[in-house]
Design a protein around this nucleic acid. Structure first.
Lengths: 197, 197
DNA sequence: TCATTTATACCTAACGTTCGTTTGGGTAGA
DNA sequence: TCTACCCAAACGAACGTTAGGTATAAATGA
């Protein structure tokens, strides 16, 4: 029904994203995948290689989720809106992907970072920058603005376990649509939003 | 010249923030602090307790850095501006603090999260919310807006190792003043910033 | 005052456990 | 028979933690 290698990779993604490289032993991983430790070593040469392949596996799943966002016949506003919505959805839905990302940013291994930038984010980032240039007129700060958009969505979601315990929190704040909507509003108008003088 | 316990804590903060709980052994830690393993156990009952005290140590250092921000006689704009500047500075200067924070968000232990919310962030967050309510008129979305401000600064800084490899990057993008300035501009005006019609 | 207790800070060496990995062998389909 | 797949058992190394001892200096009692 499912290839052993794929099964191991799926298990590895879940475990590594939740407990990190050092937090997961090959024994625990094998047991979670319902096989012996040596069977895992039959499919992967060592722990490091398994981790890398698991990372690729986790990121590859999401690479095409954004393709529908950048359809050529859409307005810049609509593209931006779809991107934010899509990013928020991916990050809330695929917790493992988000955690893997966070972990990689923490480790900050420059080689892996370069790989991630080139293979996963570069294309999306270029598209996002193009949309922003179109909207803002200047291409001066497109990089920084694009980064801001992504950062805003990512960190709002990743701060949820903390913000739950801060004053004024409501459960709606964690719904994808609410996040996307608020972020877009902020991007368009700044924090003064609507009702101010 | 320096108490052993404090010396251990400082070493622990550095190591734990960079390599995580599982990535640091008591032997490595003791060697880094120039003492035997057993000497560490003389000051701390076990690894878990040491980690917790190190976390407190790392966060306590920064708790009062924000106090000068919320002086009562300042304009709301000025308060917000100072807060963003201060946050950006702390997160860029004290790398260990930032990494510890990121790691706690990843682990998301709810007990520790509650502690952090109450003892470290609650007061700052309230002040920030008050400023935002004042600026935007409504208190409806103050929580989310405050969260957005913090998220924006945090994640821009934490994404630096990745953004370095994305198109359009310049070295100025990582300077505290530049970040603070851009973030404020975004908060005030949205991404269309200045030159667009 | 001086011997002695007490307390603190630290050491080496070891405890039992778990780690990543390997060995040597099994079993089933081609 | 060959190849792909899987197992139980074991390897040495590193793990968290503890036992038992030493050095130093303050506190104590005669």
């Amino acid at each position: 029904m499912m290839g052993s290698k794929e099964n191991i990779l799926k298990t590895a993604v879940t475990l590594f994203s939740r407990q990190g490289f050092d937090g997961v032993s090959m024994r625990k991983l094998a047991k979670s995948a319902n096989m012996s430790t040596a069977a895992v070593y039959h499919h992967f040469p060592n722990k490091q290689a398994l981790y890398l392949q698991a990372m690729h596996f986790a990121f590859a799943k999401q690479q095409q989720a954004f393709d529908q966002v950048w359809q050529a016949d859409l307005e810049a506003d609509e593209k931006l809106s779809r991107f934010v919505r899509c990013l928020a959805e991916v990050l809330t839905t695929d917790v493992d992907f988000r955690r893997f990302m966070q972990r990689e940013l923490l480790d900050a291994d420059d080689g892996r970072m370069q790989l991630l930038a080139k293979q996963v984010f570069q294309e999306q980032f270029k598209q996002l920058m193009a949309v922003i240039e179109q909207k803002s007129g200047s291409q001066q700060q497109a990089h920084f603005s694009a980064l801001s958009v992504i950062s805003l969505v990512c960190d709002i979601i990743q701060m949820q376990p903390l913000s739950r315990h801060l004053p004024g929190w409501k459960k709606e704040h964690e719904q994808v649509d609410f996040i996307a909507c608020q972020v877009l509003n902020l991007l368009m108008n700044g924090i003064k939003s609507k009702g101010s003088k």
